[in-house]
Design a protein around this nucleic acid. Structure first.
Ligand SMILES: [Zn+2]
Ligand SMILES: [Zn+2]
Ligand SMILES: [Zn+2]
Ligand SMILES: [Zn+2]
Lengths: 130, 130
DNA sequence: TACATAGTGTTATATTATAACATTTTAAAT
DNA sequence: ATTTAAAATGTTATAATATAACACTATGTA
């Protein structure tokens, strides 16, 4: 469950844009889209993105340098994320699987070490592209 | 098991450097280190990196934009990778766990879709940093 | 030899992200 | 209400990461 945060103006503008988007958005594409709302510089975008990631409202797709809104209420605030990525159309979907998150949260490496924070990206072809 | 490839001169120089390194290396750090061997431009580095990733000799740590040599002989040529990353000292270790790779290779999403290719990055504190 | 494929060298440029600093807003705490 | 600390903003400049385009060379193979 997401802790409720009151977003600031810039954060809200940028979150709304990402949330409405059907696909992950890149920082400079976000910048282009919010310039008419007065956000003019990359740093303004990156600062809002950093905060939104920190509080779990969005996630960064590391292999794509892009950002997607979280629609997974069981997401532990940006700490444990999993996505499927279509290698043809680049559609990205957040995976919400209790089994998967439980398996990964309980996974121990050779030294018996557990990791509560992880990011998993699966690659394949989506339904349409198969 | 890695298919054997004969590396070209640039590929070999860059692989040797990454392989000797105790930590993931970034592209421009690689460039700096191989300039005395005649590799002068970013593109020469990126082309070698692309190929080395493709054939599974190295992996890219996506969250760090850095490259590490593969020391996991069961790695299916760059397709299925898992790492632990220390958030303090940035030590990165490739995870070699039959159980984990089996679980992930067999994971099915809501649509019953399987993904043979994935990248997983665990974050936490290494032994030293705890 | 002819041909296709992969690799190289080079210059220029695109894309992604942060440093530094001054100022303003916000939300407590007194 | 005033003080104060933390967070956010605005701005300019720059750093770091990655690719486009083009001419050329090496390699394998039919
Ligand atoms: Zn989420
Ligand atoms: Zn697709
Ligand atoms: Zn490997
Ligand atoms: Zn460490």
């Amino acid at each position: 469950m997401h802790k409720e945060h009151t977003l600031t103006k810039n954060q809200q503008i940028i979150f709304d844009l990402i949330d409405k988007s059907s696909e992950p958005m890149k920082a400079y594409s976000i910048l282009f889209n919010v310039q008419k709302k007065g956000i003019k510089a990359p740093l303004q975008v990156y600062r809002a993105l950093d905060k939104l990631v920190e509080i779990g409202k969005i996630h960064k797709i590391e292999s794509r340098n892009a950002f997607i809104a979280c629609h997974n209420s069981s997401c532990q605030v940006a700490k444990a994320t999993a996505f499927s990525i279509c290698e043809i159309c680049e559609k990205v979907t957040e995976i919400s699987s209790a089994g998967l998150s439980k398996y990964l949260a309980n996974f121990k490496d050779k030294d018996g070490m557990k990791y509560s924070k992880y990011n998993l990206e699966f690659f394949g072809l989506c339904k349409k592209c198969r």
